[in-house]
C-alpha cells in the first residue's frame, strides 16, 4: 500500500477516507486536520489559554502534543486517582505524563492528588460513600468534572480541552439513542459553551477514529499508558465501541457517517432546535461556589467530611510542574530559565 501523497510505503490506511499515508505525511495530516476541526467548530483561538485534561493515555497526550505543535497556549491538568489495580495504574500514568512534560519545556502541568488533597483515593471515597455499586466510576466522574472546572476557573483558563475521539462520541451517541436520552442528545456537540462559571469545553479530536489517535501517538513517539483503568473492564462504552467496530469492519465509514449525520441533523436540519431543556434553577454551592441544582452543598462537596472541607484554601492549590521541574505550589510561577 502506497502513500497517496508521495507513493512511499504507507503506514496507515483510513478506509473511511480512502486515504493511505506514510509516516511523515500522516503526522502532517493529523496536525492539519486538528487545526481544521478547531476552526470549523470555533473551539478557541491562539489568544486563549487552553487547559488539556490529561490521563496519561494516547488521546489526551496526543492532543496536548498537537496543540503545542500548532502553537496554542496549552497546559495540562492531571487528577491523581490513586488507583493501583495490581498494575500501579495511577503511578504509571503519572510517570508517562511527567515524561511528556520533561520533553516539552515551558509547558505547565497542574496536578491534583486526591489522596493528598482530600485524604482519600478515588476507590477509597467510593467505598466510604457507597456510590456506584461497588465501582468507583461514578465518583471518579464526579470528582474529575468538579476538579477540572475548579482548576480551569481558579487558574484562569477559559477553555477546557479533552481528548475525546470519534469512537468515544459515536459510542455515547449510540448509548443515548438506545435509551432515548433526549437531554444528552440535545447537548452532545464538539463544543459546550462557557457559562454558569464553567469553562468552554472542547473536543478537538472528535472527528478522528480511535485507531488514528493511537497511530499518531505511536508515530510521534509519545510514551503513553497502554494499560486500561482496571475498573473499565466490562464498561458499556467499550462494549458499544466493539459493536461499532464490527459494523465499521463490514461497512467502512459507518462510524463517521453515524456521528457526522447526527451533527448535520443538528446544524442544518434543526434536530432539537425546538427542544427546550427543563429549566433547573441553579444555586451556587455554599462551599465551592460551583453551580448545583439544590441549595446547600454540591454533590462533590457532600462527598467529604467536615474536617476536609474546613481545610484552608491553600490546601487545595494544585502542584504545578513546569518544563519538567517540580515546584511547590507557592513557586507556581517560577520558570526554568
Amino acid at each position: 500500500m502506497k502513500c497517496r501523497k508521495c507513493r512511499e510505503k504507507a503506514v496507515i490506511n483510513m478506509r473511511q477516507h480512502k486515504l493511505a499515508l506514510c509516516k511523515p505525511h500522516y503526522l502532517e495530516w493529523f496536525v492539519e486536520q486538528t487545526e481544521r476541526f478547531i476552526k470549523k467548530y470555533k473551539m478557541f483561538t491562539r489568544d486563549e489559554r487552553v487547559l488539556v485534561a490529561v490521563s496519561g493515555g494516547k488521546d489526551s497526550l496526543a492532543l496536548w502534543d498537537v496543540l503545542l505543535k500548532l502553537g496554542y497556549q496549552a497546559d495540562g491538568f492531571y487528577l491523581r486517582l490513586g488507583i493501583d489495580g495490581g498494575i500501579r495504574y495511577s503511578d504509571e500514568s503519572y510517570e508517562k505524563i511527567k515524561t511528556f512534560v520533561a520533553e516539552h519545556p515551558g509547558t505547565q502541568l497542574h496536578v491534583v492528588d486526591a489522596k493528598e488533597m482530600y485524604g482519600e483515593s478515588i476507590p477509597e471515597v467510593a467505598q466510604r460513600s457507597r456510590r456506584g455499586r461497588g465501582k468507583p466510576c461514578s465518583v471518579c466522574g464526579l470528582i474529575k468534572r468538579h476538579e477540572m472546572n475548579r482548576i480551569a476557573h481558579d487558574l484562569g483558563y477559559p477553555v477546557l480541552a479533552t481528548g475525546h475521539n470519534l469512537d468515544d462520541e459515536a459510542a455515547v451517541l449510540f448509548s443515548n439513542t438506545l435509551h432515548w436520552q433526549v437531554g444528552y442528545l440535545a447537548r452532545q456537540y464538539p463544543v459546550l459553551p462557557e457559562g454558569n462559571g464553567f469553562a468552554r469545553k472542547v473536543k478537538p479530536f472528535c472527528r478522528f477514529y480511535e485507531r488514528e489517535t493511537a497511530a499518531y501517538a505511536l508515530l510521534a513517539g509519545i510514551d503513553y499508558m497502554y494499560e486500561e483503568c482496571p475498573y473499565s473492564e466490562g464498561a458499556n462504552t467499550i462494549y458499544y465501541k466493539e459493536l461499532l467496530n464490527k459494523l465499521e469492519a463490514e461497512r467502512p465509514g459507518a462510524k463517521l457517517h453515524f456521528y457526522l449525520s447526527f451533527l448535520r441533523a443538528k446544524d442544518k436540519e434543526g434536530l432539537f432546535a425546538n427542544w427546550e431543556e427543563k429549566k433547573v434553577e441553579l444555586h451556587a454551592c455554599e462551599r465551592c461556589g460551583q453551580p448545583t441544582s439544590a441549595p446547600g452543598l454540591c454533590a462533590f462537596c457532600r462527598l467529604w467530611p467536615e474536617d476536609v472541607l474546613n481545610k484552608p484554601s491553600e490546601a487545595f492549590v494544585p502542584l504545578t510542574l513546569i518544563g519538567g521541574l517540580k515546584t511547590e505550589p507557592s513557586e507556581e510561577n517560577a520558570t526554568t530559565s
Binding site: A171, L218, Y226, C229, Y231, S232, N236, T237, K241, E242
Partner: peptide
C-alpha cells in the same frame, strides 16, 4: 499488537 479501544464505564 496495540489495542486502540479505551474507555470508562458509561
Amino acid at each position: 499488537l496495540v489495542a486502540v479501544i479505551s474507555g470508562g464505564r458509561g
